[in-house]
Amino acid sequence: MLAFAFSRALQAIPVVLVVGLIAFALFAYVGDPVLIMLGQEHTEAQRKLLVEQLGLDQPFYVQYVRYIWAVLHGQLGISYSFGRPVAQLIAGRLPATLELASVAAVFAVIPAIPLGLFSAIRPRNLLSRGILLVSLLGVSAPTFMIGLLLILGFSVALGWFPSFGRGQVVQVGRWWTTGLLTGSGLRAIVLPALTLGSVQMSFIVRLMRAEIIRALQADYIRFARARGLPERSLYCVHVCRNALLPVVTAAGLQLGNVLAFSVVTETVFQWPGLGLLFISAVRGADIPVMSAYLMLAGLGFVAINLSVDLAYHAIDPRLRIPHLGASSES
């Protein structure tokens, strides 16, 4: 198990390197950072100097290798537009995004599993049909629209929740700021988390329902019924665990999407997280911030995949490597 996790972690290295290479190949097209930094009024000599200082006169792969070299020495670079170290910028924004993503994931997963189970067991029930309809809307409506509708309903019309910002935050330890400990922070996270979680939740409800229906038709469930197992243990012990396998995979991969969509949600709600930082970096052609964000996102995806794999191993014995001697057929 440890060896497996380790080899997976090693696989993260090429993934991150390739993500970085692609990112650098595209940076030539994002705009001219020099123009943005110097403004309209500058001399050709000033421009040439800055270009040389930043190494922008080199082909992208040289820039890339230099960047990787610097990263290996712990240097993420200085943001062009903020003039502050990128590492500091990211560390400042990371807590907001992680909090938003985790609350969104909790919003998505906790209700989705029982709702999916219910709609699979009682397909004709009115509530089940309602669940299916709403989840269809959730899957198909774009994230920003859900966000805007929520703002329209709950902040503009009802005034229950703020429409933007993170509320009041408190410092926890040296590196972390949290909004989850203040009233205004808690109120502020509700709408963005709902927006961000809605797609994932609808998706999990539908997947869970489909998987339960499939599991219910399996031979071992029929056999378990014939053995006289009570309904409750039938569903809780056998059906759910079998149905959860694909759900865990999909939900894990969706968590990656949550991070990706957080760019949209953070823009809609002006949530001071990484997504918002990334959007402003794109506007300002802030190459150091963009490259750091993209590599971090790559790492995030690898980490998510790794934890999905580990969860899978915990649920499904067929993936575990059999103990020597125990596998011989007799």
Binding site: D219, G228, R241
Partner: peptide
Amino acid sequence: MKRVRGRQIGTIFQNSLDALDPLYT
């Protein structure tokens, strides 16, 4: 009837190779 199944009548189905839940010993 649920108490009859398993307790009074034991059943083995066709396809008994898939009769066991793959996730439990």
